[in-house]
């Protein structure tokens, strides 16, 4: 078996997934199957539950009910084969290189192999000249790149990205998208959220549309952008869906 197949944890099946916090039901009966291959972009207005869904899938939150099932050959230890970049990445109080090295050491990689891998990651993300800077003084965009590099370094099969380019300038956004593209081409399954419709069009193979904790539509990207089935998805694409709108009244 090839390395990729041995490490395969996909497909990921989520079934009737529900999450509650603070007495509120924030994710409501979400069912979906993430197959190996395509890039998934989760769209939806603020507060739709996108970040919560990613964290549930990544195993950081426990669902109130429903199932999260990894079905691949390496599914007995799915945590080892996934990584996540948070909406607000946390940099450890160490240098840039040490941040990546830390992630690798947690995967039990030996020192020499780590060194090579760290350098490769820094190069691929254009951070080489910052290798020895303290990570927390980097600009926001540089920190996003570092977060990507750190997550990618462990060669995850699945990479969750929560708004990886929020509040970045166009050039930085472009750079990050290039890195995401490289990660995808290297065989890592991308599951991400974004508010940037242009970015969704550029990246997505598959689109999930969420609103108020529900998954309202999942379609191939082309179909989604051409003729979304869900009325609110249509409104969202046209920039007309506001999170404070009452979906019930809209539909009537």
């Amino acid at each position: 078996m090839s390395e990729a197949l041995q490490n395969e944890i996909l497909p990921l099946e989520i079934e009737e997934l529900t999450f509650e916090a603070g007495g509120k039901r924030l994710i409501k009966e979400v069912t979906h199957k993430f197959r190996a291959g395509p890039r998934t972009v989760i769209l939806g207005p603020n507060g739709a539950g996108k970040s919560l869904l990613l964290r549930l899938c990544h195993g950081l939150l426990k669902p109130a009910s429903g199932k999260i099932r990894w079905c691949g050959a390496a599914a007995d230890d799915p945590a080892r084969h996934q990584a996540m970049v948070f909406q607000r990445p946390v940099m450890l109080r160490r240098t840039v290189a040490a941040n990546i090295d830390y992630a690798l050491s947690l995967r039990g990689m030996d020192r020499d192999a780590r060194k090579v891998r760290v350098e490769k990651m820094l190069e691929s993300t254009g951070l080489s000249r910052l290798a020895n800077s303290p990570a927390r003084v980097l600009s926001f965009g540089e920190q996003q790149k570092l977060a990507l590099a750190r997550a990618w370094a462990v060669k995850p099969r699945v990479l969750f990205l929560d708004e990886p380019t929020a509040s970045l300038d166009p050039a930085a956004t472009h750079a990050i998208e290039d890195v995401i593209d490289a990660i995808h081409k290297a065989g890592t399954r991308i599951i991400m959220t974004t508010h940037d419709l242009g970015q969704a069009r550029r990246i997505a193979d598959e689109v999930l549309f969420m609103h108020r904790g529900r998954l309202l539509e999942s379609s191939p990207a082309d179909a989604f952008f051409e003729r979304p089935e869900d009325e609110q998805a249509r409104a969202f694409i046209h920039g007309e869906l506001l999170w404070w709108d009452q979906p019930e009244t809209r539909l009537q």
């Binding site: 990584a83 996540m84 990445p89 995967r107």
Partner: peptide, 11 residues
Amino acid sequence: EYDEQLRSLGA
């Protein structure tokens, strides 16, 4: 601050 990030990294 670190909780989710460290758990995500697998610590």
